[in-house]
């Protein structure tokens, strides 16, 4: 499965993932705590600068990721305009865009395996405290393996539906998809057991 890491290789890919996450946390906190419209405008300029550094392909890809935000930004601006507080609306809208853009930046410049490694380290104290984090960690590759398979089977179900119906497949397709997932879970449990089951890995 393709992750959201940018295909464009940047220098930031070599920086430690934990440091990037720490910086993101600090920056996002600052965005929320510092008052004033000008802080957000300056932050936007800085964020755009960061997006431009790796080149045009990266910039276009990054901006495309932000498009999902426009409906909520629009609602926000119209809403505040009606109540007569446009500068505040602008500040809040910019804050949202800045926060999401920065977070996306970390996602785009950090590989899946680096982030999985960070998760493993964050989980270490929880593991020692006896929480069932091993189940979650063991599940990561399993979901990556089975999501495309399930989507593919879902598409096959759609086709089987359309082969015998003139109408579009509707919510009723959720039941066979759930059964498929349960069947796959049975097979997966068997395959795991056949090769030794899940015992927490020690590293």
């Amino acid at each position: 499965m393709i992750s959201l890491t940018s295909p464009v290789r940047t220098r930031a890919q070599d920086w430690p993932a934990a440091a990037k996450l720490g910086a993101l946390l600090a920056a996002t906190t600052a965005l929320f705590l510092l008052p004033g419209l000008w802080v957000q405008i300056a932050a936007l300029a800085a964020v755009l600068g960061l997006y431009t550094l790796p080149g045009r392909v990266f910039l276009r890809h990054g901006l495309a990721q932000l498009r999902v935000l426009w409906p909520i930004v629009l609602v926000l601006l119209v809403w505040h305009a009606l109540t007569g507080d446009l500068p505040d609306a602008l500040r809040i809208a910019l804050r949202i865009v800045n926060a999401v853009a920065l977070a996306n930046l970390v996602t785009m410049t950090t590989t899946l395996s680096d982030l999985t490694e960070v998760v493993h380290r964050i989980f270490a104290p929880l593991r020692r405290a006896g929480l069932p984090v091993a189940v979650i960690e063991a599940g990561i590759p399993l979901v990556i393996r089975f999501t495309p398979t399930l989507i593919q089977k879902g598409r096959a179900l759609h086709q089987a539906w359309r082969a015998r119906s003139s109408r579009r497949a509707n919510w009723r397709i959720v039941l066979p998809m759930t059964l498929l997932a349960l069947d796959d879970a049975d097979h997966l449990a068997e395959a795991l057991r056949a090769r030794g089951g899940i015992s927490p890995f020690e590293d």
Binding site: F146, L150, M177, A181, L188, A189, L192, G197, I198
Partner: peptide, 22 residues
Amino acid sequence: MEKNVAQIALFAALIAALGAIP
């Protein structure tokens, strides 16, 4: 144990697959 891990993982995958339908 294997069954739990498998069902937890497959339901996470199911949620993802449901997100991929129209």
